[in-house]
């Protein structure tokens, strides 16, 4: 299978202060992130707030500028793409946003919202666009009467369907979904997750799925990358990561998730302390301040990503291939 997306050593530095009389300060939001997504595959980035997962997604669509590294979409490096190249990138990579209330322009009708990418990227006539819009409405489980209404007349789940229809209308190969279900109620969340899975099969889509919710990630992904403070600490096949987590952070994260079954209550591996401020990350392995197993080397050296077995890569000094 072909790689739809390859990300290599991606870095992003944000300037957070530095006016006329201030010292310039930077935050390393993303530090050296590498991963790839194959055709028809879902790769999830999972992590807690401030881990850089959303920034990574926005770097790939170039909503923020790349500081360093490569982003290869369909065999072409777009990390520094400009103008028409950038427009082309944004036709083949579409986004689904977290908040279906905020990501749809309240002044536009549903059919105009969904047709917008067509207006931007194609020279189709109005009739041709409308035809595609009606088809798309059907595909995402809405019907034709909805086309002439405004987004605020819909519930959260329906709005997210509109957002999905808009993302799919240009027939992109890669969809970046940034927490697409976290603003929705549980019963609606499963509708949308099922829809995303169905669409993936139908159109052979690849997803970069960004989420903090491990149960959702396990359900939707083929492969997973766990992020902590701007780096991927562990990545690999979903089954391997969820059944046999190797990095201490992955272990703690999985153990922290409350499971909706009271018979499975268990002693948790509760991490001490807070997530460090990304402005001022710890030296060496960024996780060492909370890691129960940390040793001296963890404080000094940044661990390198190592292939541990054929399914998993881990960045930890204490995990070695056997």
């Amino acid at each position: 299978m072909n790689n739809i997306l390859v990300v290599e050593n991606l870095k992003k530095k944000f300037q957070i202060s530095g006016g006329l009389f201030e010292k310039k300060e930077f935050v390393n939001a993303v530090m050296d992130v590498s991963f790839h997504i194959k055709e028809g595959e879902t790769f999830s980035l999972v992590g807690e707030s401030g881990c850089g997962k959303s920034t990574t997604g926005r770097l790939i669509t170039r909503l923020v500028d790349v500081t360093e590294g490569k982003i290869v979409v369909n065999g072409k490096d777009v990390a520094q793409a400009k103008n028409s190249e950038l427009t082309h990138l944004r036709e083949s990579v579409q986004m689904i946003f977290q908040d279906p209330y905020a990501s749809l322009n309240p002044r536009m009708k549903v059919k105009d919202l969904i047709a917008e990418p067509l207006v931007i990227h194609t020279k189709l006539s109005k009739e041709e666009r409308d035809k595609l819009v009606y088809e798309m409405l059907e595909i995402v489980g809405l019907n034709a009467e909805h086309a002439n209404r405004y987004a605020h007349e819909f519930s959260g789940g329906q709005r997210q369907r509109i957002g999905i229809a808009r993302a799919l209308i240009t027939k992109p190969k890669l969809i970046i979904a940034d927490e697409p279900v976290s603003a929705l109620d549980v019963s609606i969340q499963s509708q949308i997750l099922n829809l995303l899975k169905k669409l993936q099969k139908e159109f052979n889509l690849s997803y970069l799925f960004i989420s903090h919710d491990l149960s959702v990630v396990e359900y939707i992904s083929h492969r997973v990358g766990v992020m902590y403070l701007g780096t991927i600490v562990e990545q690999g096949d979903k089954e391997a990561i969820f059944k046999n987590p190797l990095h201490p952070y992955t272990k703690a994260l999985l153990s922290s998730v409350p499971i909706a079954d009271p018979t499975m209550r268990k002693e948790k591996m509760v991490l001490k302390g807070d997530i460090p401020n990304p402005k001022n990350p710890p030296s060496g392995c960024t996780f060492h301040t909370r890691c129960p197993l940390a040793t001296d080397i963890c404080k000094q050296q940044i661990p390198k990503m190592k292939q541990i077995n054929d399914k998993q890569q881990v960045a930890c000094h204490l995990v070695n291939e056997n």
Binding site: L63, L89, F97, A102, E116, I120
Partner: peptide
């Protein structure tokens, strides 16, 4: 600051389109 402006950007909308379709209204 509206998310839908960012959404329009991610769809590849030009500056003119964003300004007149999404911001000016």
């Amino acid at each position: 600051e509206n998310v839908y402006v960012e959404a329009a950007k991610s769809m590849g909308a030009s500056h003119t389109r964003i300004i007149f379709k999404h911001i000016f209204p």
